[in-house]
Design a protein around this nucleic acid. Structure first.
Lengths: 218, 218
DNA sequence: AAAAAAATTTAGGTAAAGCTAAAAAATAAA
DNA sequence: TTTATTTTTTAGCTTTACCTAAATTTTTTT
């Protein structure tokens, strides 16, 4: 089935907004695709007609099996392109999202298949999000946010869930990126800050706010 | 100025169809963008309003300076992506055109700038067509088609102007591609066929039809 | 449980990009 | 130079994807 760019975007957003057991509300989706609720309603009817969502007027909705599959295909393309932009073209990871939003709609299956091979079939994108394989399967990594890692543990940064330029600035300053090995020295319960050590560098302290967005594997 | 994919396609086609002194006719353009003459008229009015073409109803039209600049930007993107698809992803050159038709509309300037650098700023795409640089400048190579190369001359294949799968099959069979060095041994005026030699391989004969599409530099 | 608030849908409208059929202008032929 | 043919434009319609404003339904509050 050939979908429009718009349809693909709605599907993708529904996937991201979905809360198990509750589905997705129209208002949330409207904000997410940057449009008005009335426009969402129209699109919902279309997506429903195409059997991509389960929809009953005035109620929350969910993706069908087919809708889910398509969402994963778009997300797969998005993340592979992000990986390409960072690893091959040298973009910073906070710059690539917007460009990947365009590239994710290029339709050729063969292209994405070859791109994946060219990149060495990565399992995670530069933000640490898992890249679905061609069957829609993703690696699930049990990752914990830095403020919840026990003291004295050595961990590896695996994902950073805030993509703002300001967060990027902070991480760059401390030399923290995907793959960085961090030893958690101490937690201060007063303000939730964490004292950490990277390699042989002097100890540094991260605020609770920053630590919350840094996910690691043990 | 942000143009739609459709507008960019029209501009690109006008560029390709343009004949110096005569401009472009609506019927030709309609065939080229795969639409009807009536739809072309509407688009011409829009492009004229945006100062991208010089248009007077019922007459042929031409690109303005600005229109020309935009055409070259689209062509630049198209050819750089084709180069990427062939050189990095390993596509055959006759498969890449359709995919590049989609990729050429990705808008990020930074992306295309980095892509160019990543590819090593190539001057010609896999079909041998010149790639405009970021100022719209293209290398002009005096190239001659194989059936017009004098006997005993050693030349280098520089462009192949037929992109069909059948032509591709033929060239693959003989091991002819961009960059191949060919020595023209003899022309047969009876049927226009050419006897050639590639490296130390045995002599082979190409039909006039094939030779016509193979362009070389001396 | 009725009233108020919030969420969702309907109704009616716009712009882009296409279509067919008919009218008008330009070009070619007699 | 008329007439015929071809080319181009206009008129009127369709679909996608948005919009605002008003009506409806659901949810929350009193």
């Amino acid at each position: 089935m050939k979908l429009s760019e718009s349809e693909e975007n709605y599907i993708k957003c529904i996937y991201h907004l979905h809360v198990p057991g509750q589905g997705v509300s129209a208002t949330l989706l409207a904000a997410s695709v940057q449009t008005k609720a009335a426009s969402v309603t129209e699109m919902l009817k279309r997506l429903s007609r195409k059997k991509l969502i389960n929809y009953k007027p005035y109620h929350n909705f969910t993706l069908t099996e087919l809708g889910n599959k398509i969402a994963l295909e778009v997300i797969r393309k998005h993340r592979l392109w992000e990986y390409f932009l960072v690893e091959k073209l040298g973009f910073d990871w906070h710059e690539v999202h917007t460009i990947a939003e365009e590239l994710e709609h290029i339709s050729s299956k063969e292209l994405i298949h070859r791109l994946e091979a060219f990149l060495g079939s990565p399992s995670f994108d530069p933000h640490g999000d898992p890249i679905p394989d061609r069957f829609g399967k993703m690696k699930t990594v049990r990752q914990t946010c830095l403020s919840e890692i026990p003291e004295k543990k050595l961990v590896t940064v695996n994902a950073i869930t805030d993509q703002s330029a300001t967060m990027h600035e902070l991480l760059k300053h401390y030399g923290i990126h995907i793959g960085t090995k961090i030893k958690v020295n101490r937690h201060f319960s007063f303000d939730g800050s964490v004292e950490i050590k990277i390699n042989k560098q002097p100890l540094i302290t991260l605020s609770r706010k920053a630590a919350q967005y840094i996910f690691c594997t043990i």
